[in-house]
Design a protein around this nucleic acid. Structure first.
Lengths: 180, 180
DNA sequence: ACGATCATGTAAGATGTTACATGATTAT
DNA sequence: ATAATCATGTAACATCTTACATGATCGT
């Protein structure tokens, strides 16, 4: 997964929607995008510099108050080409995607292991909270179903809800199995 | 996710089941474990050296044929303690888990975009193949349901099947939406 | 004999996280 | 005033991938 520099494409994609600052890009990884990718500002600012050096994006300085300047970045034509190339490139495999919890479970041999209850319980709480949050997002962002200009966003939220629903159902069944 | 050195715990967990060589450990990431974590031999051999330096594992030389020696690693008591600490440590958040495909979708605005059909179709083929493979694994590894000593393995395979099932269902519905 | 697989390692470079560092603006 | 948030950057370090490198064994 690494080595393909997915981050640069995400940045191009977000900037293609509307011009954003590094700070705003960073925040994007805490909400929608955060379900599928993460990145810190320490990774984003250097990447913005590289993209600008490659003339894929440009920035304009904005001033708020007395002297605070922020850089608002925008995609250049070459950047749009690169973004579209990425979108058109097709995947060759269903990505593995790392998840630490199933791994732990893999090393627990018997249903009688005392650690199973707490482990599964904690995960259940975490994922049910996440599911509630996602359903809430769905309800607030798409109260009347999917519109004309947000199709991808809708599909992706739908995916996240389904993924967490399946995760929770699995945990519930696993807990039932342990108790039986 | 990084910085916690999950790889070392996976190695300890695998070696705790039975002694393995670096080569065998590497292969483990192509089958069961591969659904949740990946690692190349270039990462595994150095990690084995570090674990041995820390006296968490040890190895014995095995000879096959004339002169080919392989190192078969085994967990030491200190390694078992560390493995158990990891298993007992509880997660503080539901991990994000990176997945490139939903991300691409996020940047597609309308259901009329010509790229949607091929993109979703490719993913559907990949994930349905994966699901078939996982179901086959389930049928061969647990033909009579879960046994006494493989509970974790069963749970984890069950999870993988459910995850792919949900993924496929989502793709099918998404494709139906695009065609409508 | 030859190709597939077994077997182990290193090197270079990309990606990602945590911590360090600084300062401005806004709301209370 | 002061705390929260806005805003941008760098440094050190850990993780991960790709490629380089070598040689043995097994099946046909």
């Amino acid at each position: 997964m690494a080595q393909r520099n997915v981050l640069q494409y995400i940045i191009l994609g977000l900037l293609d929607q509307r011009p954003l600052t590094g700070y705003e890009l960073t925040k994007a990884f805490d909400s929608d995008i955060g379900e599928f990718w993460s990145a810190q500002h320490s990774q984003i600012y250097p990447q913005l510099r590289k993209l600008e050096e490659a003339a894929l994006i440009k920035h304009e300085d904005e001033i708020s108050g007395e002297k605070l300047t922020r850089k608002r970045y925008d995609v250049m034509p070459a950047g749009q080409v690169m973004l579209n190339d990425w979108l058109a490139s097709d995947a060759t495999e269903a990505a593995p995607g790392k998840d630490e919890f199933p791994l732990k479970l893999y090393f627990i041999r018997t249903a009688q292991d005392r650690r199973l209850g707490p482990m599964l319980g904690t995960q259940q709480r975490l994922h049910e909270q996440k599911l509630i949050h996602l359903r809430h997002q769905m309800a607030t962002k798409f109260p009347e179903g999917v519109g004309k200009s947000d199709f991808g966003h809708y599909l992706v939220l739908d995916y996240a809800v389904r993924r967490e629903t399946a995760y929770c159902a699995w945990l519930t069944d696993a807990i039932a199995r342990v108790e039986a």
